[in-house]
């Protein structure tokens, strides 16, 4: 968080704010104050950890490699589904997404997978197209 704060203040905010003329407060002001606040409290967090190292040592590891690996796999499946929706449309991409996640979660019965993969898409398609009158990918 401290690194995030420093990089926001010195790199990202200056680089990502368009230069221009203004009166009053600069557009840098607000994000810089917020980033500075994050940095100050991150130092507080570090100080807390330094003062009570035993408490933190006794805590369970918040994120194991196995959990993170699982998160990455699921996110990759969802990402593949999003790409499929983007390229092939909501019917093919949506069905692929739902079916892929069901298979990953251990569902193997086609009689459950096929209706589950198609029914929500049909409902969403009808609602979005005919009620919301909004386009779908």
């Amino acid at each position: 968080m401290l690194i995030f704060s420093i990089s926001m203040i010195f790199v990202i905010i200056p680089a990502e704010t368009m230069k221009g003329q203004w009166t009053g407060l600069s557009p840098y002001f607000y994000p810089t104050v917020m980033s500075g606040g994050i940095g100050v409290f991150a130092i507080g967090l570090l100080a807390q950890a330094a003062l009570r190292p035993r408490y933190y040592a006794d805590q369970a590891v918040p994120l194991t490699m196995l959990q993170f690996g699982m998160f990455l796999i699921v996110t990759a499946i969802v990402f593949a589904g999003v790409l499929a929706i983007d390229n092939f449309g909501v019917w093919i991409g949506g069905a692929f997404t739902i079916a892929a996640i069901m298979l990953f979660m251990g569902e193997r019965k086609p009689l459950i997978i096929v209706p589950t993969a198609l029914a929500p898409i049909a409902v969403v398609y009808l609602v979005v197209t005919y009620v919301l009158r909004s386009p779908l990918p």
Partner: peptide
């Protein structure tokens, strides 16, 4: 959950 969760993920995307 094998039925509910994939549908929720699809709804998240939409």
């Amino acid at each position: 959950d094998t039925i509910i969760i994939p549908v929720i993920i699809f709804l998240c995307i939409i």
